[in-house]
Design a protein around this nucleic acid. Structure first.
Length: 592
DNA sequence: CGGCCTTTGAAGACG
DNA sequence: CGTCTTCAAAGGCCG
């Protein structure tokens, strides 16, 4: 929670910073653990790769799409998201390794919250993002709303609508911010850029250098300029954000609301000229929504807009397709996919996703928390933007789902309750089986083996990681923290190889592993859990995902090792400090 | 050309 | 209230 902690934005920031050490240290974090270390290395590698690749391939293609070329812009929110993620990714990669603008990692060192960027820098990429987002929020008077990140129920917060508060900004904001970076590292925005909407006028103007800067072009505080409040809203390519709701528009945003970076980014990325008109994607409100995607209209990969027949438009108008907000994992996927792809030869998304799924589980609580928070904000924003929207609206839009019952093949009764989600995965336990299985399956199925990847992954993720990481190093004290509430399904799975299904975690706890508290269901989310977790916007799953979901091995171990609550809380509060000063292992012990 | 596969999470639907 | 289903992204693969 620290991160989430709205109240002390500063503190949060501070915490983040601490955490941030992870980022760099991420690698470091784990020194203690081989696994982690490996993982980190892996990551690093990947990042390195990415860099190169980004410059070359991935980025090219991606950028190409995204570049503000004069395309029509209808894109949707998807694209916007892509930007974000991409920005994120780049940020990470670039920032991390290249450190373009920042020589070194400046951020790390700077504790100053005021300077978000810096501090953020310290954090893991995601963390950074996070911070950035927050800042703006903090600044805002109305922050109360935002702050909630953790605690306050979203519902409360939002009184939603009318007050758009920063809502506009948040979720996306961060993202947007990222987007800046997205171009940054290697690419000078020259082409991109130069025009930025004038915050005030909305007219394209030349950006300040600072804005242009790829990485953190602008620090909000630093920047004197006030971004156009709506800047990010500006649809440009649309991507970036959710469509604006009428309410949103009305509100004058406090300058604060907008993150300078966002605005700049947005503008830079999206060429203004392109944007301005609402194309088809008008929201009900009549406001153009990037978020709204019409299937028909989606851009083509090439970047070309598919011609949208008039009829199509009509439909759209009638029912604009508003996509679901991305969840934490999806956000993570977007961010990390490129890296994974770069690392391995495989390109199939299915395979990549498996890997990502494992990595996701291996993330530390803090890391996951970042994404959860981000997702939460995104949902919040989404709800504000589209008050009336419900997930159900999209039901049936996606073609049909796979037969849920793939089960047939594996039809043991047990599966019945398993979701359509991969059966395989179910069986595969992250621990032992899992890692292998999926991969193996996957590899088997796929012609292209991920040569590089597999080995590493296995090594990393699976056994070793799970095991070592936790025990040895509390790599994730946090994880430990998280775990208490929820048994780490993952672990549990590991513990029980075959039969266990993955999914069960949510509901089932393994007896063996399970911790007493179990709560299984979720609800119980221990205080701790709740604390760190972002409050779920939706009341329903108040349970922190982390808890509910498979926890990192660490968590599992931790839970086993130590009594949940005490340790837990203590850890929560102090964990950052511990991290920094002491080895994880110590922490764990101490906990005990 | 369109659906499948795969992942986790969120939320709707249903019992 | 608990369980199940659908969708979100993404991109190669397959029919």
């Amino acid at each position: 929670m620290p991160q989430l902690n709205g109240g002390g934005g500063d503190e949060l920031g501070a915490n983040d910073e601490l955490i941030s050490f992870k980022d760099e240290g991420e690698q470091e974090e784990k020194i203690s653990e081989n696994v982690s270390a490996e993982r980190d290395l892996d990551d690093v590698k990947s990042s390195l790769v990415n860099e190169s690749e980004n410059n070359s391939s991935s980025s090219d293609s991606e950028q190409t799409e995204r570049r503000p070329q004069p395309r029509a812009d209808l894109e949707s929110y998807e694209k916007a998201r892509e930007y974000f993620t991409e920005a994120l990714r780049r940020q990470q990669d670039g920032g991390f390794f290249k450190s373009p603008h920042y020589p070194g990692y400046p951020f790390l060192m700077i504790p100053d919250l005021t300077n978000p960027y810096l501090s953020s820098g310290a954090l893991s990429p995601s963390a950074r993002t996070y911070l950035q987002m927050k800042w703006p929020l903090l600044d805002v008077p109305g922050t109360a709303v935002l702050r909630d990140s953790r605690s306050p129920t979203p519902g409360q917060l939002s009184n939603k609508v009318p007050v758009v508060q920063h809502a506009h900004m948040h979720p996306l904001t961060p993202l947007i911010t990222y987007s800046n970076e997205h171009f940054s590292p290697g690419t000078p925005p020259a082409h991109l850029s130069p025009e930025i909407l004038d915050p005030k006028t909305g007219i394209p103007r030349t950006p300040h250098p600072s804005e242009l800067s790829p990485y953190y072009p602008l620090s909000p505080g630093a920047m004197g300029q006030i971004p156009h409040p709506l800047g990010w809203l500006v649809p440009q390519q649309g991507q970036p954000m959710y469509p604006i709701t009428a309410g949103g528009f009305r509100h004058p945003y406090p300058a604060l609301a907008m993150n300078a970076s966002m605005s700049s980014l947005v503008s830079s990325h999206f060429s203004p000229h392109i944007v301005p008109h609402h194309h088809h994607g008008l929201h009900q409100t009549g406001i153009p929504h990037p978020a709204i995607v019409s299937a028909a209209i989606k851009q083509e990969p090439n970047g070309e807009l598919s011609p949208s027949p008039v009829s199509t438009k009509k439909e759209e108008d009638k029912k604009p397709h508003i996509k679901k907000p991305l969840n934490a994992f999806m956000l993570y996927m977007k961010e990390m996919r490129a890296k994974v792809v770069a690392e391995c030869t495989l390109k199939e998304s299915a395979a990549i996703n498996q890997i990502l799924g494992r990595r996701w589980h291996s993330l530390s609580r803090e890391e996951q928390a970042k994404y959860y928070e981000l997702a939460r904000k995104e949902r919040q924003l989404h709800s504000q933007l589209y008050p009336g929207w419900s997930a159900r609206d999209n039901y049936g839009k996606r073609k049909k789902r796979k037969r849920d019952n793939k089960t047939d093949s594996t039809p043991e009764g047990e599966d019945t309750h398993t979701h359509s989600h991969s059966l395989f995965s179910l069986k595969s336990s992250p621990f032992i089986l899992c890692d292998f299985r999926p991969l193996s399956d996957f590899s088997a199925r796929n012609k292209k083996p991920c040569v590089q990847y597999l080995p590493q992954e296995k090594m990393i993720d699976s056994p070793a990681s799970s095991h070592g990481s936790m025990l040895d190093s509390p790599a994730t004290p946090s994880a430990a923290l998280a775990s208490p509430a929820a048994p780490a399904p993952t672990h549990s799975e590991q513990a029980q190889p075959l039969s266990l299904t993955t999914k069960p975690d949510r509901h089932h706890h393994f007896p063996l592993l399970s911790k007493p508290s179990s709560s299984s269901s979720s609800s119980s989310s221990s205080a701790s859990s709740s604390s760190y977790q972002p409050t779920s916007a939706s009341g329903r799953q108040s349970t922190p995902p982390l808890l509910s979901r498979p926890l990192p091995l660490a968590s599992l171990h931790a839970s086993l090792l130590s009594p949940p609550s005490p340790f837990h809380q203590a850890a929560l509060h102090s964990h950052h400090a511990l991290f920094q000063s002491q080895p994880l292992s110590l922490v764990t012990k101490s906990a005990d």
